[in-house]
């Protein structure tokens, strides 16, 4: 029995082999409108050519408070009600990459590690000794190094790419959970209300029970 417990305790400290993946860089997402706005900008230039965002509509951006003129510039001929589908057809994508680039609406929620995963992935590109680009986080990726991390050599350039990756994550994090800010605000009110209510109920209970002590 003791041996069994010992094995068990030891086991808790050994992280299983399958979890040994590239270390993710933990990030704090900037959820401000400005960061999201910069993020959409970068996203439209670097990602939207191939990746769709089918659950997000241009009107959602307007609703969040993104600059209206910018939205009109991005959406071009599409209506404000249109989903932010990609510019590339599925056939063209199959030709270029051998697969259809995944929709990014839920990307920050669809991977273990979420925002940190996405950020680490975007800045995870590097040049192999053979001169090929590869990725620390997702070596099998078919996506080219859209932000140019692997080619960025001097620190200023690298931090510029990192800043862009940060903004993209801010935007996609909002895209995956557009009601997050509302949810958190409402949450504080609900929990505050419940704490007061529960304290009152506690006193009611004490008052009721005092009769029979």
């Amino acid at each position: 029995m003791n041996k069994f417990i010992a094995v068990l305790v030891l086991h808790c400290f050994i992280s299983p082999a399958w979890a040994e993946e590239a270390k993710l860089e933990k990030i704090q997402v900037d959820t401000s409108v400005l960061a999201v706005e910069r993020g959409v900008d970068t996203f439209m230039n670097a990602c939207h050519g191939c990746h769709s965002l089918k659950y997000v509509h241009y009107r959602d951006l307007a609703g969040f408070g993104v600059n209206k003129d910018k939205i009109s510039a991005w959406r071009g001929d599409s209506t404000l009600d249109a989903a932010m589908t990609s510019l590339m057809s599925d056939d063209a994508a199959m030709q270029s990459f051998g697969k259809i680039p995944p929709d990014l609406s839920m990307m920050t929620k669809a991977r273990e590690g979420g925002n940190s995963y996405l950020y680490s992935y975007l800045i995870g590109y590097y040049l192999t000794p053979e001169g090929m680009t590869s990725n620390h986080v997702f070596p099998e990726t078919k996506m080219p190094d859209a932000l140019g991390m692997s080619g960025a050599t001097d620190p200023a350039q690298r931090s510029e790419v990192q800043a862009k990756a940060h903004d993209i994550v801010s935007f996609l994090s909002w895209a995956a959970d557009p009601h997050e800010a509302e949810r958190l605000t409402l949450g504080y009110y609900v929990i505050g209300y419940l704490i007061i209510l529960t304290l009152l109920l506690y006193n009611v209970m004490l008052a009721v029970w005092s009769k029979i002590k």
Binding site: G114, D177, L201
Partner: peptide, 23 residues
């Protein structure tokens, strides 16, 4: 009265998850 007090405690825990850690 005791059940409703317990319910209050439960709802605090439940809504903490619903609003802050739903994912």
């Amino acid at each position: 009265s005791k059940d409703f007090f317990g319910l209050g405690v439960f709802l605090i825990a439940y809504f903490t998850v619903v609003f802050f850690f739903p994912h």
